[in-house]
Amino acid sequence: MNDDWGEMMEKGSRWKRIFDRRLATIMVAPCIIILLGMFLFPLLWSLGLSFYDYSVLRPVPPRFVGFQHYNEIIRDPYIWARFATSMRFVALAVGLQLVLGVGLAFLMYDNFKGKKFFMALMLSPMMMAPVAVGAFFRFMYDPSFGIIPYLTRTLFNVDIGWIIDPSVALYSLVLVDTWMWSPFVMLFTLAGLLSIPQHLLEMSSIDRASWWQRFRNIILPQIKPLLILALLLRTMESFRLFDTIWVMTGGGPGLATETLAITLYRVAFQHWHTGRSSAVAYIMLIVVIVLTNLYLRLSMRQEGARG
């Protein structure tokens, strides 16, 4: 009797286990299918397209061209120049956001009157649609009617062609991106700062540590992982930044702000070279992956040194 019961119980639980597993699969399946359908499939599909001469606009059958697009793109000085513009933008914008974000985080770390209000104010740019930000700044930078040229003219008596001078336009974009995203870096840094145990800071003050010693030995190690994450996200985002630039300058004046993302858009949706644009997109993807890995390695190095 006992054995029978045991067997039945075991059988029952085995069935239950199998059923549980099935149920789990069924529950997870929609999510997996959506993920595959929305991300993996387009990714692979566009990888395939990048080897074809194909335009989705034009009903001509796709022609396999192998690595021809990649070959052409890599040898195209025009593409390299756009890439350089992108990298300059990324380096300047992310660099400035890093400095300002960390600086702001230190300000916000202290308590002062109106801190909450100031915080809310600072976070508001992040909440805005990039297109709206682009449109705002396009008006504010407007050489004839904009507030910014007016202020620089009346306050400092300098005429700056914010978005009409090709040597300045990229910096104007950098300023906008910085205005929008420094608070993002600030948030991450602040989270790191707030996680620093109070007693470590008190210890360092009793140790008579200088500001720099304190920063190097306590603050930096604590905020570094978050900071690297913030930089990683910002680098990826600003590398593929499109809407703000498109609305503000349309890649101009001339080619001053024509980044790779803008060129990709043109190739894909103005010239409708779907195959070639897929190749450009893949090259951008590879660049982002390389940059990401650089950052990760940078953060790993610290870990390794300690281990």
Binding site: P166, P253, G254, L255, R266, Q270, H271
Partner: peptide, 22 residues
């Protein structure tokens, strides 16, 4: 012609650089 936008893009960006003295 169907080549319109490609021809336009290169014209606009190149000649705009010339407008700017670049």
């Amino acid at each position: 012609e169907p080549t319109f936008f490609e021809m336009l893009t290169v014209f606009q960006e190149t000649m705009h650089e010339a407008v700017l003295g670049e």
